[in-house]
Design a protein around this nucleic acid. Sequence first.
DNA 1: CCGCTTCCAGAAAGCGCTTTCTGATATGCT
DNA 2: AGCATATCAGAAAGCGCTTTCTGGAAGCGG
Lengths: 357, 357
Amino acid sequence: MPERPVRARTYVTLDAVARTAGVSAATASRALNGTARVREDLRTRVLLAAERLGYIPNAHAQALASAQSSVVGVICHDVGDPYFSAIASGVMRAAAARDLMVMLASTFRAPAREVAYVSTLRAHRARAILLIGSGFEDTAWERSMAAELGPYRSSGGRVAVVSRHRSLRVDTVLPENRAGAAELARALIGLGHRDFAVLTGPPSLTTVADRLRGFRDALAEHSIRLAADQVVEGAFTREGGYAAAAELLARGLRASCVFAVTDVMAVGALAALRESGLRVPEDLSLAGFDDVPIVRDLTPPLTTVALPLVRMGETVLDLALREPRGQRSRVERIAGEVLLRGSTAPWRGGTAPPGSE
Amino acid sequence: MPERPVRARTYVTLDAVARTAGVSAATASRALNGTARVREDLRTRVLLAAERLGYIPNAHAQALASAQSSVVGVICHDVGDPYFSAIASGVMRAAAARDLMVMLASTFRAPAREVAYVSTLRAHRARAILLIGSGFEDTAWERSMAAELGPYRSSGGRVAVVSRHRSLRVDTVLPENRAGAAELARALIGLGHRDFAVLTGPPSLTTVADRLRGFRDALAEHSIRLAADQVVEGAFTREGGYAAAAELLARGLRASCVFAVTDVMAVGALAALRESGLRVPEDLSLAGFDDVPIVRDLTPPLTTVALPLVRMGETVLDLALREPRGQRSRVERIAGEVLLRGSTAPWRGGTAPPGSE
DNA sequence: CCGCTTCCAGAAAGCGCTTTCTGATATGCT
DNA sequence: AGCATATCAGAAAGCGCTTTCTGGAAGCGG
């Protein structure tokens, strides 16, 4: 009649290791973790016992006892999107270097979901929470987010973001969206273009606002105005770009060059433009932003503002984990590099391309 | 003189909630989790207290006490790769539906790292471990992997894989690589092609072997042989495809159609082919496999065998979590759909394309 | 009106570790 | 030698929960 309560699943515990090694649990713990000196022979005995028994420490118990976990959380809109997956890849690399595990969450663009994930990550006592991508311009979201992040940070949690709201006063990896877009615009003007159309994303996103602003700024330097009807809004997805381009066409395209605020949108736009019979860049130049991995392989390769996405992923984790110095939140500015590729051609006369309505 | 030991970070505990609600911890736990009936007024009091105090349960304590965690682990080669990121996206969606968090790990193609990750995931008592992508043909790896996975499974852990070694006897989501490649080959033959070249990946990967085999099978049906020097091997990356195509060109291309066993490789190959002055599909047809999100946006759009990657990600999690019926491992076969797109054209005479050496 | 269920709250025993704290032994000084 | 100091192993106290287990109160049939 065994008096041991029957637990469905039972694991090799530290106690078991200690017992077979003939030492105390404390010593076994110290030997395994190297947290304190342990006599050499005892150490080997413990290690051997652990090996023999196939001991796997219980990370939950460790986290509970030591009051710190070894996971960092990453929240993005969708890992399926090349922009996020490139950044996530960078985060993973940096995390591996620090022996941290990454909990990844995709919000699929639902603000509520994002808040819920932060809460869950808090429950898991994540060392750091990384928010990747633009925030939402939703006051309810903002409030909930602050309510989550505030207590989290004051209990020692680290938060860092990639291109976010400034309202979140946290360490930030910030692409120089405005400067990048401006430089791109200048390059485009340098090619002779004077009439532009823009495919933008949700205007509430600072990323969008900044890129649009920078683009406009540079146009203004040359006294070029962006006609209101030549700026069309779409979702930050391939389909969003496609739809926006279609809408632009429907409105009547009056530009020789189209700037999509995101490469992913540009890809969709390219498809839409093609379908309507326009040739890029012969009839119309097209430029994007981000230099997402695939766009250089498009035909024509996409002119864009290159961002070091993978490195940004590494940086955001580093930033989060770096010792906080003072109360000020740090901002790591990331310069974009204008890459003039085949999708943009010198202007050859005629504002509206042939074949446009 | 407080006798309370000073812990650096302190959180709101269940006890605190219980105390302010005037109930026991047990009741608070039951109220919060709904694991048992609790008198209505007590329940509200607990919920209110939790809300007021900003209570966040400690997931580690929960996992430890209840002996089950709410995380699943996903191991892939690199989330930065569109193939993996698409599948990961599917896993995330399925995980969200079940209220599970996902720990994601990228091995960056290092077998040892993969084994280490499995071990870590075991330490975290992951509900399931999902291995995405081909395994390694490394006996040491195979042994270590079996040594990890065996105990994990027998202690209740679930394992499922996407397109893996059969040596791992676990639930599998298996693209019909062979059939898909064969069907693709038939379609290509249908276009009139008779001379083929293949860009393959590491031959030890079953995925590669199967696709190559299927392709060869179909050629054989028409008594077409694949010349040994027209099959070149490269890494499963864009650069691998680029290099392989370059090598093929260096060897002397004697084909009217090139099949890259992976879309990602095909993208690299396309670049290499272009650079050497070959036009696709006029001079040479090119086909891939997977239908990774971007290849339909290439110019010309890539002919490929489409796999429902996102759905595969959902499926692999479902498979892992499904009640095991019997001891047999289940295999969910995923049919590929041949998509003839612009990168392949009917053969127009002349085996070797103009401009090839 | 009494005994037998049923229901539900609380006490308490862990879950598997880490980390003081304690004390025994070895080491260094005078 | 003799005492102070440094080392290092073990005992034990938690970490913050869940989950028996226990027992009082209420419900109910006879």
